[in-house]
């Protein structure tokens, strides 16, 4: 638990003060480049005899500290301000790598971690939940509400927005409950009851608050609140979170992606269905059957996103 908290604080720090942490270091930039290279840029000129000497380096993956990766060359670049480390085998850039250089800073070793940017990782969770693993078209969840509310564009937008808001609140609460109550007390088997309870609570709370604060908005969006609870995506997201051990930021991104993906799916579908109403369709296909066929075509189109890697 302590780890989680520390992680959170650290992350907030890193996000707020970019550069400060690194400026204290000798290292200005470090990144993976190519399949088997790590590129390092120092803040000033460094001794080429030290950084160019591969025997001074120890490089390993953070999870396997006992397995040293074999270096083949260290080429000094940028007029003595940078170095490119070449490895014998391709690196797995999904894992964090730890690089340690002996003798660069006096007698001690300089350690630093090389990983893909965390913001990029968070964005990839968002994009993945929205497009690649869209909850409606590739995970087949929330279909009842999806087909029920995708007849009109205005309804679709309302439902999508309300759903995203409830999703964010309830997923956040579920994450805290899961991390700080269910896991420590070994109550994992109560997942279903706790999550559905939290969703009902959120829906009720949003209902009450909206009714008091903005009755106009409530009149237009209130009807969708009841439907949110019948949508299985809202209960699927906490269950997925429980399986994948995400931290809070990742949870937030997944919830946002799930909500955004649902909104996108609803909007696309309602645009088609508004046109379908004036189209000539065989009578036995009218209504739901043709909607299913259209959804199937969307699902096929969304298959095209699979394997998409942005970050």
């Amino acid at each position: 638990m302590n780890m989680k908290l520390r992680q959170l604080l650290l992350l907030a720090f890193v996000l707020l003060l970019p550069g400060v942490l690194q400026a204290a270091d000798l290292i200005k930039e470090k990144s993976f480049s190519g399949a088997n290279e790590i590129k390092v840029l120092f803040t000033g000129t460094v001794d080429a005899a030290i950084v160019g000497d591969i025997s001074r380096y120890i490089v390993y993956e953070e999870n396997d500290p006992d397995i040293k990766l074999a270096l083949t060359a260290a080429t000094v670049t940028d007029g003595g301000r940078g170095v490119i480390l070449k490895f014998a085998e391709p690196l797995n850039s999904a894992n964090t790598h730890v690089v340690s250089i002996r003798g660069l800073n006096g007698a001690g070793a300089v350690d630093f971690k090389v990983s893909k940017s965390y913001l990029g990782y968070l964005l990839s969770i968002l994009i993945s939940a929205m497009l690649i693993n869209n909850f409606v078209f590739t995970k087949y969840l929330g279909l009842c509400v999806f087909f029920g509310t995708s007849k009109r564009k205005s309804t679709a937008k309302g439902m999508g927005v309300v759903f995203t808001i409830v999703m964010l609140v309830s997923a956040s609460m579920s994450w805290f409950f899961y991390q700080y109550i269910l896991i420590p007390f070994n109550l994992n088997f109560l997942q279903i009851v706790v999550f559905i309870g939290l969703v009902s609570l959120t829906v009720q709370a949003v209902d009450t608050i909206l009714r008091k604060v903005n009755p106009v908005l409530f009149n237009s969006f209130g009807v969708f609140l009841v439907l949110v609870i019948a949508n299985c995506i809202i209960i699927a997201v906490p269950l997925i979170l429980a399986n994948s051990n995400y931290n809070y930021f990742e949870t937030f991104m997944l919830a946002l992606g799930a909500g955004g993906g649902f909104l996108l799916a609803l909007y696309l579908m309602s645009s088609v269905r508004e046109r379908l109403e004036i189209a000539k369709i065989p009578s036995s296909f009218k209504g739901l059957p043709i909607a299913f066929i259209v959804a199937g075509q969307f699902a096929m189109a969304f298959l095209g996103f699979s394997g998409l890697k942005l970050f």
Partner: peptide, 20 residues
Amino acid sequence: PCAGFFVVGLMMAFFNWIEV
């Protein structure tokens, strides 16, 4: 994965047709 939509949609249409 996506064929589920088509199968359900076609079967619904089929049942509607029988009823009619």
